[in-house]
Amino acid sequence: MSNSMDKTPENNSPDKKRRQFIGYSAAMAGLAIAPGVTLFDLAHGRAPEEAASSKVRWGMLIDSGKCASGCNDCVSACGTENGFSGSRETDSQWIRKVEIKDLRIGQSHSLPMMCQHCEHPPCVDVCPTGASFKRADGIVLVDRHICIGCRYCMMACPYKARSFVHEELHDQNPDVPRGKGCVESCTLCVHRIDRGGQPACADACTAAGHNAILFGDLNDPNSEISKRVATLATTQVRADLGLNVGVRYQGI
């Protein structure tokens, strides 16, 4: 009787076996893909042949409460990464530490100031050659192949974020080409981002244990930076200009 039950078409039909097989293989495929997908999300990497997308907007959130006065780790990391030591008077400055103080109550804050990667960048508006541009993912860059070094963008920037290269340079980092006669500024370490990394300053701040710089995608509602921007009181420096900057500050 039991034998006959086992052999009923219901249990042993080829259709059911096929369905089970399909179910198992789907589960296996899910297992195989899931870790890959997770890694992909964590490293936010793109394939090298994939262009930067406007679905992403890179930004940083700087917690001035954690940024120690006198600490220069982000500034020196930027110099090491991008090839300026600060030892020459004419060296570029992509990031600088700023101390702000409310004289009435004596409250002071320390924070790094760099290119704010505006959504509506004034430097791009004024550039006569189109060298200054905003990439699809919100990073504001200078195309040195086209830059004629007029420095109009330096005048237009409300954050004093850009520098002009006055002298010939040698032994550049192969990932960061820089040369005399061009304006330059923080690139948000675009070469690192394209490989799935984060800017050198953010890395250095984390490595030193301050965790004052948080880098991430402002367009992704699940990213840490978006959650914090959504829940905490964060400030855009010179918000009155309506530039919608990508670098936000917390605690100032």
Partner: peptide, 25 residues
Amino acid sequence: DTPAIMPQQVQAESVDLNSTGGVRK
């Protein structure tokens, strides 16, 4: 050839922000 403290990094600025009601020095 990098000095321990880089001259350009130690310069600090005084910036007034509308939000904190700070006064420019």
